[in-house]
Nucleic acid binder design. Structure first.
Lengths: 353, 353
DNA sequence: CGACCCTATGTAATCGATTACATGCAACTT
DNA sequence: AAGTTGCATGTAATCGATTACATAGGGTCG
């Protein structure tokens, strides 16, 4: 008896239960569809009695506005695209969570694009945003869509609010949320130097990466502040992955004169590198100190536990989402937010033997 | 000169460049909108000449169909919801990648819902699917929406295709993709017993969790196959997190008689547990062997490297997405897929001292 | 008391595609 | 030659909301 109660024309029958539409609610509440719509969007512009009847009818029918129809008319999707280079990378997952929870509270959904280094995907997602499937985007990949084909007249005018997270996009005039990578790297370098290390190796991130450039500058800053010379032979290429840390470790093991400390610009690399050193019979930190960057979950439980730079990942995500939402809703938003990092001292670093 | 070329009524001017609509393409190609639509959806039903003109016009205008309009009319969103309990958990990220890449190839987008244990969120996403924002969903959380309020007459009739991944949903008649948790746990237990361990501890997952139940049964199977008695005192509660592994380790360290081997049902717990044992001065594997489950990236570079059960995570994601896509497109799909696991022998397990 | 304004509501246009149905024409059948 | 079939295409209804505009009624003010 208390099912839909389909009044008017069509025979109810046992047909597949279609979702209630605004029409059904309007009929049940004895108002027009316009009033139903207003009762939801601008309650103060509807009389209390009508509002009550509408809400009752909504409860009875289980009405949920059809998002496609709403989007078509209002040109708002309440969806945000998050673009990231590698979904499987531990570093991003907690950031994502910060983003997701903030968006959720504001009524936005999140669509994730894992670029995976594929230009094909990038083009796809450029089309995606162009087609108006999302109201805005958060970019964690350090560049805009279609950066590759630069000269072609369409210099990535996406036309929706964008926010850069972690990796500021140099040429673009969009807000970015970040940590002070340069200062943090400098601080770690000085920490190592302060313990007495003179030969400090640096395991880099991917070349051309903004983070890498900043951290590398910070490393040199730190050396200079400590009065140490910069030695290019102590720069080891990496790409933030465990595997590249392992490879860097193998290179170190093979050397005759080794650095007394290694600063890895990601925890993954640091953990991979420690693994290789330990397997080769070297002791950490007695024979060689190892420092990381990021403070991922596993840094605290690595053996030895990892001295690293803590990044407030969840907060970074929250901040990016907050800024984007402000932009979407026409509120002013800061052009740049810089969150504090923290030097976390654990057991993988000690004074040189 | 070669911009939109807005024929007919409205003055072009320098107004904000609106996205091209099907109307614009139709006018430019000198056909009706129906033909444009058909040229894209069913090319074989359009003459080659018309098709060529349409494609040319599309290229010229940069036309991309408006998804909201398309969805509104065709009731298809080309979006899939992925529901998972914890986005920040390493275990899921590679699965997600498998899902994402498969969906992407088939032209589907992915919306992620990180439930985060919040019933509020669950309700929200139930409404989400009910509102028709997605064509289907992949559930990694082990239960359907609204499982809590069972008796209330609406037993989670979502009405869209669903696929369960990893954690089969007992009461629901939906396809599930999984590994044979019970057999894998039994195998690991027998491996430990085969090395001579008689007192094997078991660090569990969360109570009521389906995975946990299966693995626990497998553990008992393994003991029985090895002719070992089951001792409830050797079952230590956990919840798959690093922290619970650390806690389990603290419990072990405090004991007077310890097991000679510990089987942790996640790598996170195993790594946290090893950390605690090592800090307490115990040696792994000499004093105590530790085994994990999942084979996450860090298992290979833990110190000591972790003996564990390898789960084909990416493939699990791919399989789930493939099944869902088959369902969405009306093709038959298997009710159950079971992928093979692998016992990975590393250095955290050795015969008892 | 009439002009004016404000509030609550209804009517209907609109968003941009898909698609059922209609139509015109060429080719084929008998 | 008339009828049938089928293809290519166009016309217009439709999906379900939002919202510009119109309108009715009640209150205020000069």
């Amino acid at each position: 008896m208390d099912d839909l109660g389909q009044a008017g024309g069509t025979e109810p029958g046992d047909a597949p239960v279609r979702a209630a539409r605004i029409q059904d609610v309007a009929r049940l509440a004895d108002v027009s569809t316009a009033t139903v719509s207003r009762a939801l969007a601008t309650p103060e512009r509807v009389s209390p009695e009508a509002r009550a009847r509408v809400l009752e009818a909504i409860a009875k029918t289980g009405y949920v506005p059809n998002p496609a129809a709403r989007t078509l008319r209002s040109q708002k999707t309440y969806m945000v695209l998050v673009v990231l280079p590698d979904l499987a990378n531990t570093f991003f997952s907690k950031i994502l969570r910060g983003i997701e929870e903030t968006l959720f509270e504001a009524g936005y959904g999140m669509i994730i694009s894992d670029l995976d280094g594929s230009p094909e995907k990038e083009a796809h997602f450029a089309a995606f945003t162009a087609a108006g499937r999302v109201d805005g985007a958060i970019l964690l990949n350090g560049h805009l869509f279609g950066q590759s084909r630069e000269g072609e007249g369409q210099p990535a005018r996406i036309g929706i609010p964008l926010v850069a997270l972690c990796e500021a996009i140099p040429s673009a005039d969009i807000p970015h949320i970040e940590i002070d990578n340069r200062a943090a790297a400098s601080r770690m370098t000085q920490h190592l130097a302060g313990l007495g290390h003179r030969r400090i190796a640096y395991v880099s991130g991917p070349a051309n990466n903004i983070l890498e450039r900043e951290r590398f500058l910070g490393f040199k800053d730190g050396l200079e502040a400590a009065g140490l010379p910069f030695d290019p032979a102590l720069v080891i290429p990496g790409d933030y992955t465990i595997e590249s840390g392992v490879a860097a470790g193998q290179g170190l093991v093979a050397r005759t004169t080794r650095p007394t400390a290694v600063f890895c610009t990601s925890d993954e690399m640091a953990i991979g590198l420690m693994r290789t050193l330990l397997s080769a019979g070297l002791r950490v930190p007695e024979d060689i100190s190892v420092a990381g960057f990021d403070d991922i979950e596993f840094a605290a439980v690595a053996e030895p536990s990892l001295t690293t730079i803590h990044q407030p990942r969840r907060e970074l995500g929250q901040a990016a989402a907050t800024v984007l939402i402000d932009l979407l809703q026409g509120r002013p938003a800061p052009k740049q937010i810089r969150l504090e990092t923290e030097l976390v001292i654990r057991n993988s670093v000690a004074p040189p033997g």
